[in-house]
């Protein structure tokens, strides 16, 4: 992360969702602090963390909103889907119930986010192979059927954690490059920050003009 903490071109907003206790906060902590947080307390409402990553030579600041899994916080957590460019949907590979609830989480995510939001399915706790309750194949099939990116990860060992966040960012960046994301619209979860990406800016302005002409 060279170049100081302020040199980034984009801000991407993520939201992490999933049942209580699947390790959402631990994934975030592992990603932002590179440490495993044992005895992680239940999240109250929402919490948030940031980190700058580099994708295709662009520095991107990830603003990650970690939601409480408990149902009683729904009134708070559902407000954070709106502005998300990426949604990380987490289940626990050792607890089938958390996998079974995915479709309801997915429905929420589809309903409350915008159509370009990249949804990434994460099977957490991959270090607990012995207690596995959901096979990789099964989850992979679910992900493919629903057009989700998928990976198994472990917040404890840090396995794949980095990849999950960065792959999501790559996909979002790809969407921007393909012109699927209007940088001028609010609540896409993507913000262009600095002038350091003149090419993109030009493109954006072009899009804007196109929009005007239409």
């Amino acid at each position: 992360m060279s170049g100081g903490p302020y040199n980034y071109s984009y801000i991407f907003k993520y939201i992490i969702i999933g049942d209580m206790g699947v390790g959402k906060s631990c994934l975030l902590h592992q990603f932002t602090e590179k440490k495993f947080m044992a005895d992680c307390p239940h999240t109250i409402g929402v919490e948030f963390g940031t980190r700058i990553v580099e994708v295709s030579g662009q520095k991107i600041k990830l603003q990650i909103w970690d939601t409480a899994g408990q149902e009683r916080f729904r009134a708070v957590t559902r407000s954070y889907y709106r502005g998300a460019a990426g949604a990380l949907m987490v289940y626990d590979i050792t607890r089938r119930s958390t996998y079974n609830h995915l479709s309801s989480w997915l429905t929420d995510a589809r309903n409350l986010t915008n159509p370009n939001t990249v949804i990434f399915l994460i099977g957490n706790k991959s270090d607990l192979e012995g207690q596995r309750d959901v096979t990789y194949q099964e989850a992979k099939q679910f992900a493919d059927e629903n057009g989700l990116l998928f990976m198994e990860a472990s917040a404890k060992t840090g396995d794949n954690v980095e990849d999950v966040f960065i792959e999501t960012a790559k996909k979002i960046y790809q969407n921007i490059q393909d012109g699927n994301v209007d940088l001028n619209a609010a609540d896409t979860g993507v913000q262009l920050k600095n002038t350091t990406a003149p090419a993109d800016r030009k493109q954006t302005q072009q899009q804007k003009q196109d929009g005007c002409n239409c």
Binding site: I11, K13, V46, F48, Q63, W65, A75, V76, R78, S79, Y80, R82, G83, Q191
Partner: peptide, 14 residues
């Protein structure tokens, strides 16, 4: 109200 507050919360963070 939740949407408004949530929006503001994120805006404040940004």
């Amino acid at each position: 109200c939740g949407y408004m507050f949530g929006w503001l919360h994120q805006a404040i963070a940004t």
